[in-house]
């Protein structure tokens, strides 16, 4: 059962179907959303675009849910899907090793070259000890996503999931459709 949902694209933000007003577009939109709706988590600026997008989408989702107690819990999973895995971070890291004359591999860039880091960022922020997972499919397919989330309730402790699509190909091109789903 879908309780809440958030949609973010470079030009549009919707929370439970209602448009959220904003002035910026693209990567600047994510920063604007951070400043207007979160503001107290400077680690945001260290994140790659995928983590920024997933983090903002989850924050908007949880603000609507209302309970922001940040109490440790194990009954909530974070299961995300996309097409491009960590392509933006991969491309950024590659740029630090491409030129043999300027070969300075960046650990801060490398750590984001895994798509599941965003699930970790959301868990750290909210103290979720529950399941975290990241699945890549080559096209957005709501049926595959919903079936997979339904299956995830086979875990003996999971009763709700932050789940859905969080995808970006570069800093300016991204899309998130994130759900708060309860066991059904």
């Amino acid at each position: 059962m879908i309780k809440h949902q958030v949609f973010i694209s470079p030009n549009e933000v919707k929370v439970d179907g209602k448009a959220l007003t904003h002035n910026e577009k693209g990567s600047a939109l994510l920063t604007e959303l951070y400043r207007n709706h979160i503001g107290d988590y400077p680690k945001f600026f260290k994140m790659d675009t995928l983590s920024k997008l997933g983090f903002i989408a989850s924050e908007l989702l949880l603000n609507i849910e209302g309970d922001r107690s940040f109490e440790p819990r194990e009954d909530r999973a974070v299961i995300l899907f996309n097409r491009n895995a960590s392509l933006q971070a991969d491309t950024h890291y590659q740029s630090t090793i491409q030129d043999p004359g300027s070969f300075f591999p960046s650990p801060a860039a490398f750590v984001y070259t895994l798509p599941n880091i965003v699930t970790g960022e959301i868990s750290i922020r909210n103290k979720y000890f529950g399941e975290t997972s990241f699945i890549v499919i080559d096209d957005y397919d709501e049926q595959i996503i919903m079936k997979n989330l339904k299956n995830a309730f086979q875990d003996p402790m999971t009763t709700s999931i932050i789940g859905g699509w969080v995808d970006c190909s570069d800093e300016e091109h991204f899309e998130a459709t994130l759900f708060l789903v309860y066991k059904f």
């Binding site: 300075f104 591999p105 960046s106 650990p107 801060a108 750590v111």
Partner: peptide, 13 residues
């Protein structure tokens, strides 16, 4: 810890 590693790269660069 990641910041510390990044500072090592920064000093080399």
């Amino acid at each position: 810890s990641i910041d510390a590693l990044e500072l090592i790269v920064m000093m080399e660069k």
